[in-house]
Nucleic acid binder design. Structure first.
Length: 426
RNA sequence: GGCAGAUUGCCCGAGCGGCCAAUGGGAGCGGACUGUAAAUCCGUCGACUUAUGUCUCCGAAGGUUCGAAUCCUUCAUCUGCCA
């Protein structure tokens, strides 16, 4: 057997996953439980390079992989060099294909983002794989004979995603995606003894496709489970609208913005998010949930959540800086009383630009990116949503002068309640 | 290949020669309330400008007209039916 016997596995892993609500669907749960207790299970979870960075939804999978590894199992994180070329079908319609160069670049970036979350050492060291390696050279004939033969089209057509697309159309390319992902599982099963795959609940069809392929092709037994889709309490996705996706890349979503995102999570979701996105133990999470219910204004749950997740993704140093920045900007005290160094750091964290003294306030708003045009800036002022140094600005012609500087050379701009940006005069 | 229909601002969707920067809904943004929450209410939502002005815009390019998102031609893409 290829199972590593030197690793001790945590027998309570599945209970913990269930308590955290991480198992939305699964194949035979008892069989999975048995396997997870018997020894180190080799498992895989795939990430398609659909953007230059992974996002919040992917983080859930990465952390789940980490949980499994910490419990003694062996991760095979997969980057979709091949599947990323094809595109998973989605309800919103046919995807635009990316070029090979783009996909390759994104594959590298995605791989580097996953690496810090798993360990590549020890007897259950992670093994990074790329499905391009066994897919690129595959011949069409082999693919159709060895893989395609096991997929009844009537069943493929019955899948929800496919059915919803039949009206508007779906290309053969996207229709075939499930074959590629299923083949990945089969390949990893054959070559590496991987017997478990998990993914988001939208991947359920693809997950079971692989399990079934292993059964049909090799008569093998494999497992799969799907993690839940995390939505806001009104049922909509987080970061669904363009622009405000929560990226793991610090260049795309600053650690400050990342920390703020978690801090602003709605009360009703804090418990769920703590269970899913942090490694805090059960008792601690239950205490935080209780505090959130009884004294919601303290936002103890949100604070713990923001600190934990930001530390996981960006490290303790960045987290401390994000917190310090928030404390300086949202603090009740006078901005002038915040130390110059602290203020400067806070503003750089929140976003800062430089401009000469005498620049009209409207232009400063545009320069910081708080508004997207001068018209937008004037509108915001008219709506009463524009502030300088925490005081509302009502005059659209306002031009800050030397008397407005705080922390030596800074102007603190704010739009609405919580969007800050700094301007360094120089 | 033939015939028919579609393509509207971030999304969905009205408009079918002037009153259209373009109804309505959603998302977003701001205000009030509060806790950097949810719900609710109000406002806002192309750009420049801040004027009762200019520019860009209704798949793309041409054309008809005093005037086009609206009519015509060609092209592109999608859908359906027939080969």
């Amino acid at each position: 057997m290829r199972q590593a016997c030197t690793v001790t596995v945590d027998p309570h892993l599945l209970d913990d996953l269930e308590w955290r609500g991480l198992i939305a669907h699964s194949t035979d749960l008892d069989a999975l439980r048995e396997a997870l207790v018997a020894g180190s299970v080799r498992f895989y979870v795939g990430f398609d390079p659909t953007a230059p960075s992974l996002h919040m939804g992917n983080l859930l999978q990465i952390l789940t992989a980490r949980r499994l590894q910490l419990a003694g199992h062996t991760p095979y994180p997969l980057v979709g060099g091949a599947t990323g070329m094809i595109g998973d079908p989605r309800d919103s319609g046919e995807r635009t294909l990316n070029t090979l160069d783009t996909v390759k670049d994104w594959v590298d970036r995605v791989r580097r983002q996953i690496e810090p979350f798993v360990s590549f050492e020890g007897s259950n060291a992670a093994v990074m794989v790329n499905n391009y390696d066994w897919t690129a050279s595959l011949s069409t004939i082999d693919f159709l004979r060895d893989i395609g033969k096991h997929f009844p089209v009537n069943r493929m057509l019955a899948r929800d995603v496919v059915r919803s697309r039949l009206e508007d159309g779906i290309s053969y390319t996207e229709f075939s995606y499930i074959l590629l992902q299923s083949m990945d599982f089969l390949t990893l099963y054959r070559d590496h003894g991987v017997t478990l795959q998990f993914g988001g609940s939208d991947q359920w069809g693809n997950l079971t496709g692989g399990v079934e392929l292993i059964r049909r092709a090799d008569g093998g037994k494999a497992h799969a489970f799907a993690t839940p889709l995390i939505t806001k309490s009104d049922g909509t996705k987080y970061g669904k609208t363009a622009g405000d996706a929560l990226w793991l890349d610090a260049e795309m979503t600053s650690p400050y913005a990342f920390h703020q995102f978690w801090l602003n999570v709605e009360d009703a979701k804090v418990g769920e998010l703590l269970r899913v996105f942090t490694f805090l133990p059960r008792e601690e999470i239950e205490t935080l949930e209780m505090q959130t219910a009884e004294q919601p204004f303290l936002r103890a749950g949100q604070k713990a959540l923001a600190d934990e997740v930001t530390t996981l993704v960006h490290g303790a140093v960045e987290t401390a800086q994000a917190k310090a920045a928030a404390a300086a900007l949202f603090g009740t005290g006078d901005l002038a009383e915040v130390g110059g160094g602290t203020l400067a750091a806070a503003l750089r964290e929140a976003g800062a630009v430089t401009a000469p003294l005498g620049t009209p306030y409207v232009d400063l708003l545009v320069a910081t990116g708080l508004v997207k045009s001068k018209g937008d800036a004037r509108r915001t002022i008219a709506e009463g949503g524009a502030y300088l140094n925490n005081e509302r600005v009502t005059d659209p012609e306002f031009v800050p002068d030397g008397s407005h500087l705080v922390g030596d050379s800074w102007l603190v701009l704010r739009r609405g309640k919580r969007n800050f940006a700094g301007v360094e005069i120089g």
